[in-house]
């Protein structure tokens, strides 16, 4: 079953005097439980496409459906709810809030979801344990290594039990060992049935996906489907 339908979506940005066609007529279907890699050189529009699928941005034209529901016309509040419940983001820069502990960072999406305090604590501890940070819960991001920060970010993405994980260069700021650990977590999540979409230009990262699409100048130029998934 398809979980994301992107239909002829366009998005332009104004960069100074230039108008950049970041996404220029993309149509893409993502299946539930799929591990999809989006590749392309910088400026190819892959990150913008991810933002559009993640409801962080609205397309200029075209439609995006998440689980059959059209999200391109939703208002701010409903978009926020979709981001909160359905999607988990993982960024290259980790984007943890520096003043909060690992546990509090993981609780953040649940606060916006209105999850009661006790349940929130329990769930946050659960996901942090799942990513192997049981003994780092009260640490602030500055007291954690890059790999650990990214694992906190993954735990945060998982907090509200989303269906889709969107990751933008998740290993870009990590050493290869930490990167592998992150990719292992993604593979595990994929095995558990989550839909994983990773934006990268790293071939090693791409090797984990079931399907790789290549973008250039805002368009999808090719795609390769692999039947087997590498088990790390």
């Amino acid at each position: 079953m398809e979980i994301i339908n992107v239909e002829n979506v366009r998005k332009t940005y104004r960069m100074g005097d230039n108008i950049v066609k970041a996404v220029d007529g993309v149509t893409l279907n993502v299946f539930g439980g799929e591990y999809l890699i989006i590749m392309g050189p910088s400026g190819s529009g892959k990150t913008t496409l991810m933002h559009l699928m993640g409801c962080l941005d609205k397309p200029d034209s075209g439609e995006i459906y998440l689980a059959g529901k059209c999200v391109s016309k939703l208002n701010d509040r409903d978009l926020a709810r979709v981001r909160n419940k359905m999607i988990g983001f993982v960024f290259q820069q980790f984007n943890l809030l520096p003043r909060l502990t690992a546990l509090e960072n993981v609780e953040l999406p649940m606060i916006y979801a209105g999850v009661p305090r006790a349940i929130r604590h329990k769930r946050a501890k659960e996901v942090l344990t799942m990513v192997g940070l049981r003994d780092r819960m009260e640490h602030k991001p500055t007291q954690l290594s890059g790999g650990q920060m990214q694992r906190v970010a993954i735990a945060r993405a998982l907090a509200n039990q989303p269906q889709i994980i969107l990751a933008d260069e998740p290993t870009g700021n990590l050493d290869s060992k930490s990167g592998e650990e992150i990719l292992k977590i993604f593979s595990d999540l994929h095995s558990d049935g989550l839909t994983i979409i990773v934006v990268t230009h790293d071939l090693e990262v791409a090797a984990n996906g079931q399907r790789v699409i290549h973008m250039r100048d805002g368009r999808i130029v090719s795609q390769e489907v692999r039947t087997s998934v590498r088990n790390a």
């Binding site: 962080l56 509040r77 978009l79 926020a80 981001r83 983001f89 809030l97 916006y112």
Partner: peptide
């Protein structure tokens, strides 16, 4: 600004 972006990404709406 960045914190606001992160908060929005994890589900904060304008009112939050």
């Amino acid at each position: 600004t960045r914190e606001i972006g992160v908060r929005k990404a994890v589900g904060a709406n304008r009112r939050h």
